[in-house]
Every structure is written in C-alpha cells, then in structure tokens.
Design a protein around this nucleic acid. Structure first.
Lengths: 345, 345
DNA sequence: CTGAAAGCGCTTACAG
DNA sequence: CTGAAAGCGCTTACAG
C-alpha cells in the first residue's frame, strides 16, 4: 500500500501538504498543487492507514456498538428481531456518516463487573470516538459513564444521571394504550408479564402505563397479577404451565414483548386453547412475527429503524462537537389493534 | 491511559521487556521480573493501544464481517433472520478467539464495482487480518480474492477459484429432499420459486436437487415452472397476483426461502385459500418464523449458528497459519416435515 | 503558500 | 536474561 511519504515524493511536496489535501485543508493552497496531488492520490490508489491515523491524532472514526446481553438464552443476542433491526439501522447510519462500526457483545461473566470491564477495555484499546450501548441498566450505565471519557449514547436506559444521553420510546404511554384497549374491549382481569416480578426500566414504565389505565377505570391493581417470564426456554415452558393452571383468573395477558407473546400463544394453542376466544393476548414492539403469527397479535408499534438512526446521529453530533439539545430523545408509539384480543362487550 | 513506556519506568526495565511479558514471551525471563511487571500492569490497568500495535506489526486482530446487500428491499440486511443469526454466531466466535469484529455492509452503488471497492478500501485501511464475506457471487468473490492479499472466507459462495475458502450447506441435497418429499406425498405439479428466473448459486443448487428428484420419478421439468420473486415488496405482491392466476397449474410451491414461503402463504390466505388444502407450500432454511406461522412450514433445516462459527474458525486458522484441510466446508441439511404439505395419496 | 521535524505507542532484530 | 534504538505512517505546531 502506498504511503503519504511516497505520494509526497512523487509530487515533490512535503507530507504536510499531502496530508492537507487529504483532509481538504486546501484554502490557502495553490490549486495546481492541490490538483496534482489529488490526481496522484487517485492514480496510486491511496488508502489511509487508520492505525497510523489513530495513533497520531485523537479520533479513530470508530464507533463501538455494544450490546450487553444478560441472557442465558440458547439464542444469540442478534436473533432477537428487535436487536437485529436496531443493529442494521445503526450500521447504515454509521457507514453513511463516514464512520466505522466495531461490534461488541458482552456476555455473562463470572465477576459482577467483568462484562463492563471488557466493554471499557475494548473502547479504550481502539480509542473509539463514541459508543452506542444497548441493554445496560441504570447502575451499569452510570459505571460506564464514570469509566469512559468518550461520548456514550444509551438505548432504552432509565438512568437519571445528567450526562446520560438516551434514545427511548414512550413506554409508559404504550403500556397505557394497551391496557386501555383491553379495558375498552371489556377485559377486567389482566395479567402483566415481563422479565421480572418487580419490573425495571422499560418494563417498569410499561407497567406504570398499565396501572394508569386501571386507575382511570377505578380498577384495583395487585402484584399478584404480575408474572415473571424466564429467558431460558425450559424454565419458560414451566412458567407457562404454571400460568395455564391459573388462567381462569384472567381474560387477557399483557406481554411486555412480542416474542414472549407469540411464544405463549403457541404454548396455549398447543394446549387446545383458541386465541382470542379462550384468552386474549397482547404484545409490545410490533416485531415482524407479531404480524405473521395466527392470529396476528395486537401490539404497540415503535419505529426501531428510526431509533437506531437517531441514536447514532445523536452520538455523532456530540463527537463532532455540535450542540445536542435533548439528552433524552423519546420516540412516539402507537397502538396496532389486530386479532388477538376478544371483544367482551 | 498508561503506556508501555510508563510501565517500563515504574518497573525499571526496558519497553522490550514489558512488551515481552504482555505477549507471554517469558520463557527465558527471570520469574521475579515477570511477576513484578505483571503486577504493575494490573495495578495501572494497562490497556493496549491497538493503533500503535496496528502500525508496529502486521496484524490488527480485526476481522471484517462483510455483507454485500444486493437488496433494494425496504428492510435492512440484518432484518433477515438468516443474516442476523449468522452475524451473532460470528461475533461470538470472533470475540471468544480474542479478535475484534469490524462490521461493514455494502449497499447498492452507482458504479458496478463501487461496493466492492468500498469493501477493499475498508479492509486495507484497517489492515484487517481477514474477512468473512456474505452475499457475493462467484465473479465478485474472485475480484475480491485478486484485490486483497489477506485470508478471505466466503459463505454460500460457488466460485471454483482454487483459493476460494467457503462454508456452505448441502443445497442440492436440500432441494432434492424437499421435492422427493412432495413427490412421495403425491404431488406432481410443482412450481420452483427463487430470486431469479435462471437461478444462480444456492438457488441453482437447490434447483438441481429439485430436478434430480423429478428425474427419479421420471417426471419432466420445464423452465416454465420457475418463478422469479422480486425482493422489493410491491413488485413481489404483483408477482404473487400473477402466480395466483396460474395456481391451478400446481399442487405445490417450492420456495427457496422461508421468508418468501411465509410471505406467499399470507398472501394466499388473505385470498381465502387454505394451506395446505388448496395449495402446498415448502420453504428452505428453517428460520424461526417457519415454525411460528400457521400452518408451520415444511422446510429444510440448516444449522446457521454452526455455519457462522465454522466460517470464523476457518478464517482464524488461516490467519494463524494453521493448516486448513478443506477449502469447501459443506454442512449437512435435513428435511423438517411440518404441516404445509397436503398428502395427496 | 509550503516544509522540516517531533511525536504518537508499540514491536523487533540485534547486541551484549 | 535484558536493553538501546530504529521504524511503522500519520498529524500538527511552528517556522519561513
């Protein structure tokens, strides 16, 4: 590969001058010199050595896209359609803005902060210009904010840390819309199903929306009506068995994700139940398969592609020193009624 | 960030010695020195500056994962569940082997080879140790093989170039198994549906298997029974309309991918047809949604996670100079009979 | 308008 | 068993 030095020799100029035309600092340069160098650069097929650039100046044009994958799931993180659509959208924006994407997925570690240390190390090693981070909770995001002095943008993070730049959606509103829809259809006994019995982050917000709708209808809420769904397939089946026994208590199941909703739907259909006649089911996110499943699932739509694009755009704005008006970007959601909810009235 | 020089000063040794302990070249080193340096390294939280390393030696520990995305599809490349599972599997293997993953998706370009030039430039700029490349045809792979002097491993590539390392599956066998299954169930009029009217690469192999099965049953084959399915949603709907009119000619549709199979199934169901009573449908790949759709689709299973893992493993073997026995790795497939095929006899 | 030169943090062949 | 020193390809503050 040809170097700046070689180009400089060919053009009878210094490396400074070549470097200047490469970076477009050509205002006070003789146009003739500029054109001559540009031509040679093209002819010789010059490609920047990013390693040299990385060590000589302080930006790498690398953006790290980090997933913290808490899952003990048999699947890999990208098999979640939410994650993969987000990834694809971020890649496109990163590339189109002239940056490079370094992908890092942190998996479960023995030590408590091992996965975070790996993220920090990777970012430092490569002197990434910034990071988009997915799947860390408030505490973890604050740890990273302390440990790293580059711009970070989080997705779906609920930290109140003043420097925590975030892109998220109206989770509370989404939870409200789903439950109001169920109530409007005459449902009064609704079960809320999420990752944990005491939901955090997005699930907590969705639950808050659920409660708000119940309050509007003067309906009581009990934590007994929250079910935790294990990520791991086998224990999830057990949970569904358990739920199946208690199903007489409910007329509708509010799942915090389409994936769980469709998984549960299959489980109950295999048990011989009809959806929505025997039990109504709702999801969240409007994944592709909430549409292709039978019956298609009533859910909350969010624009995942826009979310990924917005996160990268915000990150690059900070990197390039442009003013960022909102630390928290909240994208709208909307209800998508389909056929998995029975009209009770 | 602390540098090797600083560590060396603290330990009262040279940078050479520090570098040696970092790289484990400690055979002929005084254990005391080694331990002292190791301790300081840990205390000071030393992180390698990859830029400096990249410029000083000839390997970067970066592996480029490249997708060539010919699609004019409204979706991004990673929204294809096949691609995203593969990606996730490759990321995991890359990380676990101590490498870093640079992701690059080449999108449609004005110039014919523009997308390939970008791939070459990216690989050179970062001095990637090797590339795993997805979605290029034989001609494109040969161009890249010429242009780049680093190890490349392709996925699903059919080039006969002697240096073309590939990981693929038994596509011909898969095509054969599907069609034999249809024939065994009494189907005699089968339509083959793929990206092009004159299928290439994986589709060509699957078609070859289809023909082999027909030959075994002494059945004729006509190119009239091949349908091209456009990637772009709107024109695909038109093609389905067209197909719908000619549907009386067939009892079964052999789709070259689960995605198209499930898309078509929805189209026909919306037209009021029953699957498989009115028309039988088969897919290929055994994507997650071939299982969750109703009826679940009879398809050919391939182990995508293993494919990604194997591709990266093969690449790293070449990078690290280990002997690679097979230039072409062919993973097995198997028939997964589900409920989208009618028993005619 | 252009250039000489130092410096970024590492590796490595060689000397002792 | 350990170190001095050159070199990788770039950028940039400064001089002229």
């Amino acid at each position: 590969m040809v170097t700046i030095k070689e180009i400089a020799d060919l053009a009878n100029v210094s490396t400074t001058t070549v470097s200047n035309v490469i970076h477009g600092k050509t205002e006070k340069m003789a146009p003739a010199t500029r054109d001559r160098i540009t031509k040679i650069l093209k002819e010789k097929n010059y490609v920047m050595n990013m390693g040299a650039r990385l060590i000589a100046c302080n930006n790498s044009r690398l953006i790290g896209v980090i997933i913290n994958n808490p899952s003990t799931e048999d699947k890999n993180a990208l098999q979640d359609p939410y994650v993969s659509e987000l990834f694809g959208a971020m890649e496109r924006q990163i590339r189109q803005k002239g940056y490079y994407m370094l992908t890092y997925i942190a998996e479960q570690e023995q030590s408590l902060t091992g996965h975070l240390d790996n993220i920090v190390k990777t970012a430092q090693s490569w002197k990434t210009d910034g990071l988009v981070i997915l799947g860390v909770d408030s505490q973890e995001s604050e740890f990273l904010l302390e440990a790293l002095d580059i711009p970070l943008v989080f997705i779906d993070n609920f930290s109140s840390h003043p420097h925590c730049l975030n892109v998220g959606i109206e989770d509370e509103e989404g939870g409200y819309l789903i439950t109001r829809h169920l109530l409007e259809n005459g449902h009064r006994k609704i079960c809320f199903l999420a990752d944990r019995k005491d939901p955090i982050d997005v699930d907590a917000a969705r639950l808050a929306g659920h409660k708000r709708a119940l309050r509007e209808y003067h309906l009581p809420f009990s934590t007994q009506d929250i079910f935790a769904i294990p990520r791991e397939r086998i224990s999830r089946q057990k949970t569904f068995e358990d739920l199946y026994k208690k199903l007489h208590r409910y007329t509708a199941l509010f799942f915090s994700s389409d994936y769980y909703a469709s998984d549960a739907m299959h489980f109950f259909q295999a048990k011989g139940l009809n959806i929505p006649e025997d039990i109504s089911i709702t999801g969240f996110d409007d994944n592709y398969f909430s549409q292709i499943v039978t019956p298609p699932i009533t859910t909350i739509h969010q624009d995942i592609t826009e979310k990924g694009r917005a996160a990268v755009e915000k990150l690059i704005a900070v990197i390039e020193g442009r003013p960022v008006t909102e630390t928290r970007t909240i994208l709208p959601v909307r209800l998508v009624p389909r056929s998995s909810v029975k009209k009770m009235i």
